[in-house]
């Protein structure tokens, strides 16, 4: 895995990877923000749990999916 000669990483690939990571986390933040408002607005405790649970699942799917491809 470790190359012996230091190489500059391919900027285009790095940039895509970075963007993908950033989008995952930004979406988590957005889901949490919108979720907490939605949960309180509908007044149902289950909404909140659903939102958090959904977000965690989504994150897991992303995390596992990313590693499967490698």
């Amino acid at each position: 895995m470790t190359p012996d000669v230091p190489v500059k990483p391919d900027p285009a690939r790095l940039r895509t990877a970075n963007l993908r990571t950033a989008l995952v986390f930004a979406s988590i933040a957005v889901v949490f923000f919108a979720g907490i408002l939605a949960a309180k607005f509908m007044g149902e405790p289950t909404t909140g749990i659903g939102v958090i649970g959904g977000a965690v699942l989504l994150f897991l799917v992303f995390a596992i999916g990313r590693n499967l491809r490698k």
């Binding site: 230091p6 990483p9 790095l14 970075n18 990571t21 986390f25």
Partner: peptide
């Protein structure tokens, strides 16, 4: 800032 830090740490570590 956090997204930036996570991305940097996950994707930009030196080889090894």
């Amino acid at each position: 800032g956090s997204i930036n830090i996570i991305t940097t740490i996950l994707n930009m570590r030196a080889p090894g």
